[in-house]
Design a protein around this nucleic acid. Sequence first.
DNA 1: CTCGATGCAAATGCTTTGCAGAAAA
DNA 2: TTTTCTGCAAAGCATTTGCATCGAG
Lengths: 171, 171
Amino acid sequence: MVSINPNSKVDEDLVKEKEAAFAEFIQRRGLKTTRQRNTIVSTFFRMKGHISVEELLVEVKKANPRIGYATVYRTLHLLVESGLVEERRFGDGLARYEGHSAVEHHDHMICLECGMISEFYNPRLEALQEKLAEENNFEIYRHRLELYGACKDKEACQARKKQKEARAQGA
Amino acid sequence: MVSINPNSKVDEDLVKEKEAAFAEFIQRRGLKTTRQRNTIVSTFFRMKGHISVEELLVEVKKANPRIGYATVYRTLHLLVESGLVEERRFGDGLARYEGHSAVEHHDHMICLECGMISEFYNPRLEALQEKLAEENNFEIYRHRLELYGACKDKEACQARKKQKEARAQGA
DNA sequence: CTCGATGCAAATGCTTTGCAGAAAA
DNA sequence: TTTTCTGCAAAGCATTTGCATCGAG
């Protein structure tokens, strides 16, 4: 089991690397380098976690309040197309974007009580999926595994859980 | 796309059982039995697969064209609340509903070339997830595993895949 | 009779798009 | 200069909701 800590400090060199990779992508596509794109991309890679458009927009506006959400959406799509960013949806109806992870692929645990999202990776799990796909004559491009539940070690989460159960009883 | 398939036998007894269970749920909640709800529920359980609201509405309208989508949405929510139906989202932006099959839990393989959705279940996979959660002090309420890829045994899927790869080269 | 259910249309929330002006190449 | 980009507002989409009417209990 490899646990991934999302609270580590931002690696400045890594950010620069990502920015350079995006710049290269832009050029390869024959697109234009703009102040807005630079601001958005730079801001994005300096944030951590699973970032919603809203959250990113707030940060971007601190650097340049004139940037609108349309541009943020458009740039985010470019980031996804470039392969530098992944789009995720955890069922709360809004897209979240994920950039610089130490590990290229990982799965998620989502606490439904406190909203925490943590990442994990396990090679046995990956291998088992590959094996099952094989048995079904299926070729995996990518997969998504999400565990929804509650933090066992947080009192608040456990309390909320009990509350919900009680409410369900009454219904 | 698939809706009601007259060739594959729907287990009439099972459908009746589901209908009865829903009726019981409605009563327990102090809600009312209506012609519309009966039509929608009955139609739903006679369809198979992962049904979108649109697909269900089309079938429902054949029985009663006056039923609108608001009622279909509302009834679908009741079905989910009753525990008889599960809501799924496979990333194409629309919700799909699934009547509980014989196996209470299963995961999905989704072919991105032909749209096929198949189900599978593997106890080792389930056990491994449980173990990983345990190691992280996490309590799983439910999980979701989806493998996205292509059917290996369908020529059309493989052909489409190659086409996509070629297009990606050019870009 | 009462109160929940229905059907329509309008509203919502997230996301995309059309367009005129702005800015890269 | 040419073409893409931006910012705004309007449009899209799936889904939800307000409200007058309808109908089950």
